[in-house]
Every structure is written in structure tokens, then in C-alpha cells.
């Protein structure tokens, strides 16, 4: 495992910890899209079916279990916790996420490494992860003001994607057998979706001002 991959995993973990901290400390999920969180839970559940079939390393297994458990806990809190659910911006979280599910599934049926149950679901999880941030970005855009922890959450999530691209570039040169086109192309699309957010994040950071997205 190279340094980019490891830092990518760590920023991914940090983003989830920031989200859990926000929900736990403020008992609020305002600014967070339940639809994006549900899509991520589905991404992890469909991709990590290999927990039952392949053992890669203790690190790999633990991280997978942490991602599954934390995403389910976040969805549960946003739906069921008496205080947290009241702060959910339901009227702003209107992105038609079923279209993302359908499109990802159809694409997975067409484009996969092998036509097998686990492989098709793996491709589905890759396509779905690439677009799962969209409801979250739309919600932020609609609310305009982004609170500090929500801004950090999306920033670290974007950093994770960017670091995975460096990881693939590194692997491409080091490991001549590394050709994972489905993951790499989807990853590029996914990272591109953050470009706009990153732009405004750095402007607010440079000016030492609150993060605001244009309407």
C-alpha cells in the first residue's frame, strides 16, 4: 500500500468521524443529505460482499467493517434519533436519488469486469459512489450557508477521492498489471464533481471567511 492510498483511506475515515462528531456533539444533522448517506450505506454493503469470500488483510477487513457500521449508524440517527431527525432539512433534500440508483445499476449490467453477481454489484457500487455526493452538494447549494463541520466533512471526502487518483497514478507506474479502468474512470468523474465545492472552499479559506456557496 502506497502513501497516497493510505492517506486517502485516512481522509475518508476522518470525513466520517467529522460527520459523526457533528451529529453527536450538536445533536443535529442540518446541512447533511440523508439521501447521500443512504447511497453510501448501499455502496459499502454492495461493494464489501467480498468480506465473505476474500481475505486481504486485517487492515482491509477492519476498515470495511468500520465503513459499513458508521454509514448505517449515521442513516439510523438521521431517521430515528428523536433530536437528530428533527434537524434534518427534508424540504431541501429533494434530489431524485432513485435515478442515480437506476442509472448505476443499468451501467453495471452493461459495464463490468465479469458477468457475475459479485462483480456486477461491485461495479454498481463504484458507479453509485461516483455520483452519491450529488444530493449532498445540491443540498449545500440550496441552503447557501455551510456550517463549519459540514464544510470540513465534504472537504475531507473530496480529499479522499483526490488522493485515490494519485494512488492510481503511482500504481500505474509501479505495478504494470494494475489496470482497473472502471474504478479509475469513475473515480475521475467523482473527483470532478467536487471541483466547484473545492473552489469555494479555498476562497473562503484564503479570505478566512465562512464558507458560502452561490445560489
Amino acid at each position: 500500500m502506497n502513501i497516497f492510498r493510505f492517506l486517502g483511506d485516512m481522509t475518508h475515515l476522518i470525513s466520517i468521524l467529522i460527520l459523526l462528531l457533528k451529529i453527536y456533539a450538536t445533536k443535529s444533522c442540518s446541512g447533511i443529505s440523508l439521501k447521500t448517506q443512504e447511497l453510501y450505506a448501499l455502496v459499502f454493503l454492495t461493494r464489501y460482499l467480498d468480506l465473505f469470500t476474500d481475505f486481504i488483510s486485517v487492515y482491509n477487513t477492519v476498515m470495511k467493517l468500520v465503513f459499513i457500521a458508521s454509514s448505517l449508524a449515521i442513516v439510523w440517527c438521521m431517521r430515528n434519533h428523536p433530536l437528530v431527525r428533527r434537524s434534518y432539512d427534508k424540504q431541501l433534500d429533494t434530489f431524485r436519488h432513485y435515478f442515480l440508483l437506476l442509472a448505476s445499476f443499468l451501467l453495471a449490467l452493461l459495464l463490468h469486469e465479469k458477468f457475475a453477481f459479485q462483480e456486477v454489484l461491485w461495479a454498481f457500487s463504484i458507479y453509485l459512489e461516483a455520483v452519491a455526493i450529488l444530493p449532498q452538494l445540491v443540498l449545500l447549494q440550496r441552503s447557501g450557508n455551510v456550517d463549519n463541520l459540514t464544510g470540513q466533512y465534504v472537504f475531507f471526502l473530496g480529499a479522499y477521492r483526490a488522493l485515490y487518483i494519485f494512488n492510481w497514478i503511482y500504481r500505474y507506474f509501479i505495478d504494470p498489471h494494475f489496470t482497473r479502468w472502471i474504478a479509475c474512470v469513475s473515480g475521475l468523474v467523482q473527483t470532478a464533481l467536487y471541483a466547484d465545492f473545492f473552489y469555494y472552499y479555498f476562497i473562503s479559506w484564503k479570505n478566512n471567511a465562512k464558507l458560502q456557496l452561490p445560489a
Binding site: R5, D54, I56, M63, K64, E113, Y164, R180
Partner: peptide, 10 residues
């Protein structure tokens, strides 16, 4: 396993 390629990334 031998039937599918192991995917080592998360």
C-alpha cells in the same frame, strides 16, 4: 480466490 480477482482497494 481463483475465480475472481481480489480487489484490494476500499
Amino acid at each position: 480466490s481463483s475465480t475472481r480477482e481480489v480487489k484490494d482497494e476500499l
